[in-house]
Design a binder for these strands. Structure first.
Lengths: 194, 194, 194, 194
DNA sequence: GAGTAAACGAGACGGTACGTCTCGTCTTAGT
DNA sequence: ACTAAGACGAGACGTACCGTCTCGTTTACTC
């Protein structure tokens, strides 16, 4: 009978190590010691470092769920702006930023983590976002067949890029971004309105 | 007098290792051996693995410059779409994808690499992109004060996100993205036209 | 649970390296490889190269015990001569000579090895020798209060000196030495028999 | 033009290093630095560490010549005792002891040094000793054909052995040794007086 | 309950790579 | 034309972790 509490201790130790040292400095030895577990117990649950990080993501030990909820006041423009600003504020906390950077590194290095990273961490966000966009489309606020996925990924990608390059996502930045995807930056409408 | 040719051999070996094994499997021993150099010589030039990768980026050993040039036919909408599609095609080559993923991991893990990653690899792209956007603005094709930087980073960020999550950036995706930032996705104009 | 067989393999590899390369060319890397052990395992058992060599001596991996036994036929003069000749013959084998030279170098370099070298390798010989001398004294064959220790060390020292200076200890040499310590070289007895 | 003064500085630095660190911790880098010379200059003169130590011995940089002179008062018994005691006193100085131990290690490790060690350092002593013994023989104080060489090497070997095993050569020890080789330790004369 | 089988902590094992040190050779300035 | 200064390829040093493998010791299910 494998002990659930030990598994939790391992995940918590992993999260702490991840925030403190980043992905490629993770040490299974250290995690096991911090969790008060034997190394074999860690390996019994998780065959690789990547699987460990992936499960950390999957169980929500890493990313705050707060940044996932997209508000719905009926005004898509305002909701999107508010959500993006809230997201940016979440990334202002060094702990969060370090964790997400570590997960990004893990995802970049490893296909399995990438899958989990996508499915769980970002897909949750992306889903919430695309759903909000579809709701707005149904409410007649968006063009038909608006590329919701592309827009959602552009927003998340822009935030991730800011995080990676150590640039803060200021309010001016998030507002500019919101306005750009809502109203576009071109003066003239699409030629021929294809 | 330190030998420039040795340094180049080290950077080339680093690039090859990076593409082959990813960032956190990089081995200085292996790089030195592949470069026909002693380990101490590697350390003389680069105190850390990160510095090595950072300089690799800085010297342009990693990223193909081809994806940087933004076409200028006078039609910003078409140019942007073409550039984004070319960019996506560049990422379709596994070698390129692996390299950029490795650099992303390195940047996520390390501040110094992040700075170099931004300054050199992405900033070059971002600059080209923002310059093209400003040109279009001057040509009266874009709204005044269009948030060129935010748009540029949204485009790059979206591509990076696709790369990280192992999703191909299809033509439909790039076209949707282009259309979204050019014309916006909202039906109505900005309220109050601020 | 530390594995005794691994430890033995390490000691055997050390002895072989010692005979082949001498003390200051000893490489822990090479010993570990030859013993089929990890380097850390070597260090777990022996913190320093000296401790390794010292234990090699202590466990009798280096010196043949055959040369230690001093015969006892009742005739001290003959026994001593036979033993010395046997000792010299043992040193004629290049393998033995190399090993003892290496241990001598180790003992010269390092206090700990020196202690073990004395306690184990030479003291065993010296003890056997002094005991044989004391037995002879009791049997009335030697003068009272004969300086057994000094004589024993003179004999061993002479052999070691020959070894160090790469001179063979011929039968003439060992016989002259035996005769000298047994009968003295002075013509007259001690003046006044002080 | 190779500078003699540089060579002397190198030999002095070598002697100091040898006394301070022992043979196998000798570092050519450190010697060169201490001598204010370039490494290449050291190598120009001496192809190996051993050759360096060997020349150090050959030029008398290491061993004090004082301990070599054997007194000649006409009384061989007293002269030998005095000389051995003086020798022992010389070895009581830690600096001398360390130097001779280092040279012993060097000689044990390396044939070339062994040759130089014998020719120069010990052979000088041995020659003085055997000459004194021959003089005594001519003066009718010793038996005919006394094994002078064996006795000389036994005396030196005994002192070396004491040095290696970190035992002081006390006055009791040296006197016992002198008496043993002069008068022998056997009660009866050689059987059959061959 | 007593017996048993698994999961556990602890940590040794054969390895790989680390970053540092020294070797003996080779290159570069400077005098 | 020398030298000192020091970079170079090579490789050993002692340390940190890797992932695998015993060890005894709980722990929790079966009989």
């Amino acid at each position: 009978m494998r002990s659930e509490s030990t598994r939790r201790a391992i995940l918590e130790a992993t999260r702490d190590e991840l925030a403190a040292s980043g992905y490629d400095k993770l040490s299974i030895d250290r995690i096991a010691a911090a969790a008060g577990a034997g190394k074999q117990t860690v390996y019994r649950w998780y065959p690789t470092k990547s699987a460990l990080v992936a499960d950390c993501l999957l169980e929500g030990y890493v990313l705050p769920t707060t940044s996932i909820d997209v508000p719905d006041t009926g005004d898509i423009r305002r909701d999107l702006g508010d959500w993006l600003r809230a997201f940016a504020e979440g990334l202002d906390h060094p702990q969060n930023a370090a964790l997400i950077r570590a997960c990004t590194a893990a995802a970049a290095d490893n296909d399995e983590v990438a899958a989990k990273f996508y499915e769980n961490a970002t897909a949750a966000t992306e889903t919430a976002l695309t759903e909000r966009l579809h709701a707005a489309e149904l409410a007649g606020q968006l063009k038909k067949d608006a590329p919701a996925v592309a827009v959602a990924e552009a927003l998340i990608g822009a935030m991730l890029f800011r995080l990676l390059t150590r640039q803060r996502a200021t309010v001016a930045f998030t507002e500019g971004l919101t306005e750009a995807v809502m109203a576009g930056i071109a003066l003239t409408p699409s030629p021929a309105q294809r």
